[in-house]
Amino acid sequence: MDGNGDGHGGDGLRRKRLQMPVGPEDLKGLQLGDVVYLDGVLYTGREGLYKRLLVDKMAPPVDLASVSNVNFHCSPAATVRDDGSYEMGAVTATASFRFSAYLEDWFKLSGCKMIIGKGGMSEADYKTHFVPNRAVYLTTVGYGTGALLGRGIKRIHDAHWLDDLGIAQAMWVLEVENFGPFLVESDLEGNSLFERQNREINKGVEKAYEGLRPPALKRYGETTSRDDEVV
């Protein structure tokens, strides 16, 4: 790694270390498949938070943009100690594709420039929602490197709406250091690493099914092409 914490890991993958809130220049430098580590403050938010803010139109518990411009689709393995303080063990992401419907309103409300989660979203989502907001998506690795990410948490600033939403859905505000690894899944043009990999893999699908007849009893379904994704 060089003085900025950037470099190669000896495996052909580029390493990047970014300070949060992330700036436009940081994001410009990201390529699909880069390994990213983060420093600074981010917050967790998934369907529980989204529903309250975007469907029930409740006022945010805090000005989101003043906290961070990085939103993590995460529920930590955390507990509230008897003295009211928090303990956080492992930290991993939840699958992001389910939150597609919230994106338009979410970017408007939050001003997010980076979303971190599991498994990415569709290239269509990136082009429609991320690109106009100049935002990128990072995916966790594995999944998931819960213990490594847990190690990166230096301080828990807050757990907003903990009583109402529970530990898994509360908005946790986390101060982190060398927090990762993550992989760059979408860039500023809205390209998706997962979809790029899918296109490679699809070249072998026909051969894998060679000689295998469809089953006697069919099922109702939304796709029968093995080139498609189910998300």
């Binding site: 529920s75 492992a90 930290v91 991993t92 999944y143 490197t145 819960g146 213990a147 847990g150 190690r151």
Partner: peptide, 16 residues
């Protein structure tokens, strides 16, 4: 590496 971190820290390997 994650499993090693979990064992060293005695923390869960996955948050889910």
């Amino acid at each position: 590496e994650n499993w090693e971190a979990a064992e060293e820290d005695r923390r869960a390997m996955c948050a889910d």
